[in-house]
Design a protein around this nucleic acid. Structure first.
Lengths: 115, 115
DNA sequence: ATACTATGTCGTATATTTGCGTCATACTTC
DNA sequence: GAAGTATGACGCAAATATACGACATAGTAT
């Protein structure tokens, strides 16, 4: 991903791609849904709910944390993870803008040859 | 990605992850934006507009086509790619549902210990 | 202090992605 | 038909991602 050419894209495009990548694995989607459904911050229970080893889940958590999509607070022996709802809302807007832009009109101009 | 365990997730989660993965590279985001801005279907011009080789762009196009996000129609010597706006709208809804679900309420219950 | 528990980090094997050169295909034009 | 052009398919090297066991760390509890 971090090939040289990657730098030649818009910061906006890279940002969207970065977040999309974070959601590009079912486990991470599941983690976010889990954190949303349980209204309370859970910790290693997440691993128990997923069909993956604790280690692997921890890695996925770190990835989400690296993008600040989730936050972890140490509470004694356990760590409480919460969604960063503010960021998520912002990301949602970014995605919406992208999709709206892409679906604004049917792409092909009325008289275009193809399609 | 196609590890054994991957099957253990919801079809919904896998679907979202699949699409997210398609958007997980700036080149593919750029391609979609390009197709949206040029109101007419373009073909190999896409490669010319991107800082990547024709071959690489072709691969990204195939990836988007595999998910049916874009469609290509052969028009003589060239191929016209168009956005599948209908699918994109549907995907937009899926993402929106996911984000709304995730940001519906602040995750932590009022009296929870952490956060 | 000692034993126990919850997490993160590291190392590593395997799988997948990415980028691109080269070749094959197919249509156009002369 | 021969030459030229636009694309996709194939193959390969380098980069990443994925999964997980083993170890390190840090707080709890007795």
């Amino acid at each position: 991903m971090t090939y040289a050419k990657t730098t030649a894209f818009t910061e906006e495009q890279q940002q969207l791609a970065r977040v999309a990548k974070a959601l590009a694995h079912p486990a991470r989607v599941a983690i976010i849904q889990l954190l949303a459904s349980k209204r309370t911050c859970i910790s290693g229970d997440i691993a128990a709910e997923l069909p993956l080893s604790r280690t692997t889940v921890s890695q996925h958590l770190q990835e989400l944390k690296a993008l600040d999509l989730i936050r972890g607070e140490i509470d004694g022996l356990t760590v409480c993870y919460c969604l960063n709802t503010e960021l998520l809302r912002h990301v949602h807007q970014q995605f919406t803008a992208f999709f709206v832009e892409s679906t604004a009109a049917d792409t092909c101009a009325p008289g275009s040859a193809c399609c």
